[in-house]
Design a protein around this nucleic acid. Structure first.
Lengths: 128, 128
DNA sequence: TTGCTCCTCACGTCACGTGAGGTGGC
DNA sequence: TTGCTCCTCACGTCACGTGAGGTGGC
């Protein structure tokens, strides 16, 4: 599927998808003979994953590392290789993500209070 | 009060305060003879206001406009000038802020689901 | 005099956005 | 052939961050 449709489905800009490609964060599996980026459904799932990770304030390099770690873990499990280090790393990311999540909740509450405050100021207002 | 203490109290970086000054978003009321920025408590209150507005995704120019509008409204009320246009403008901002707030809630929920998912993947894991 | 705080350039960074000029593919 | 989609540079932008080199003020 072409970049435009992916962008529409995931509500991301085409430029964002191209940027993620350049950064090696989400590389489309194929190219058409004419050079068009072609994404598989697996690629799209990866993009959806990234899209949900983003609001937590992670940088592109970090997200790529999370995905790489997760994939390496799957491979290690399949080949019965040691997974301890990989798991520890993912747990680290989960801990950080949980922290950021808490910070987001705080910001959200602040914003809510803020909006209420602004509205209150308006209500105490007499029009001319 | 000096920039460093303000930064500590509001948990903002000194660079951020300087940047907001340069952009005309939050100008300290005084300078020491030596050129140090000196903020009054009113200045600090303004900064706190801005800090809460930020997470809603407003740009510096927009925030400045909100503050300018709010101040103009106060002046207009004091002098019994027409306030209709100013109120409409603030209501516009409140509406946008409410939208962004809803978007934040959605992102937060997504992030929450995302963390749970990652954790679930880890639990289904056997160590070596 | 020491030490900590603050100052102003000036350039860097991160995640894209925005044309410019050109081609793919039904 | 028309039209819509996509391509690659290359430069712009937004909100700061990061030194470099120097001074304020108790």
């Amino acid at each position: 599927v072409q970049i435009g449709e992916v962008a529409r489905r995931l509500d991301l800009s085409i430029n964002t998808l191209r940027h993620w490609h350049e950064m090696g964060l989400a590389v489309p599996s194929y190219r058409s003979p004419g050079g068009f980026r072609l994404y598989t459904e697996v690629d799209v799932a990866r993009l959806a994953f990234i899209k949900r990770f983003r609001p937590l304030g992670f940088g592109i390099d970090e997200i790529r590392d999370v995905l790489t770690t997760r994939d390496a873990l799957a491979v290690a499990q399949a080949s019965s290789s040691p997974t301890g280090a990989l798991i520890a790393r993912l747990e680290e990311y989960i801990a950080v993500a949980t922290e950021r999540h808490a910070a987001m909740r705080a910001d959200l509450a602040d914003a809510e209070a803020f909006i209420a405050e602004l509205q209150f100021q308006l209500e105490g207002t007499s029009n001319t």
